[in-house]
Design a protein around this nucleic acid. Structure first.
Lengths: 124, 124
DNA sequence: CTCAAAAATGACGTTGACGTAAACATTATG
DNA sequence: CATAATGTTTACGTCAACGTCATTTTTGAG
């Protein structure tokens, strides 16, 4: 199929497909000479898998490191192991970010109280 | 004073000063013809105030909306009122972001457990 | 074979706060 | 007055994931 149909079936835009192709997320569509690209149907599944992984919070860069495993090992076991590692990494990262946000929030509250206090005592 | 000295006293780089000038955070240094810029000493205080506001979590865009108040109204009351409004806005935004992060985190945990479960039951 | 739809290619825009480099101008110093 | 030090201007790079033109080429239908 050509890029337009692939885009519809995969629910993305042609621009996205070309972008993914440039990142190596999907194999480059074959073509005769300098004509148009032709994609096998499997590419649709690939786009769907990419979308699923994005929904897990993985970046395209993360995805590029595991997507091939899904299509080499049909059980998907190796892929899932690797994704699991990544998710655990994101969990740790999320916890760090939350801690920072909590700290930032309490600092914000302190600042706010300081401003409120100053304004109160200077309203006359 | 020239840009180099201002940079030292304000603990920023000349690049930063020019950038702030382009954003209107500090008034354009006067100059005779096409010569070098000359900045009044007050500009140092302005840089310090900008730094303080940045420490409160305000963006340069936020700062551009209040910095002038500090140098029009010497009591700084109007400035502080406006900054207080902004801080309250940031607090609300922070709470939203934290709620999102908490939700994201719990979804992450669910995903992780799902992967762990799948791997457990397929390791034989 | 013609014409319109679809595809390809290239490049700029988005967001924030500057860093860094290059080429040229001005100022200060000995 | 020669030269070093400093300043000015312009512009690209950083980071993610594409959107949005604009121009040229290929393809499928009639």
């Amino acid at each position: 199929m050509r890029i337009g149909e692939l885009a519809k079936l995969g629910k993305v835009t042609p621009r996205t497909i070309r972008y993914y192709e440039s990142l190596g997320l999907i194999p480059p569509g074959e073509r005769e000479g300098a004509g148009q690209h032709r994609y096998p149907e499997q590419t649709v599944e690939r786009l769907q898998k990419i979308d699923q992984l994005k929904a897990l919070g993985l970046s395209l860069d993360d995805i590029s490191k595991v997507i091939h495993l899904y299509f080499e090992d049909p059980t998907g076991k190796r892929a899932k192991k690797k994704v699991l590692e990544m998710l655990r990494g994101h969990l740790a990262e999320t916890d760090v970010q939350m801690a920072l946000r909590i700290q930032f929030r309490s600092e914000l509250v302190v600042h706010i109280q300081r401003f409120e206090g100053w304004l109160d005592s200077h309203v006359r």
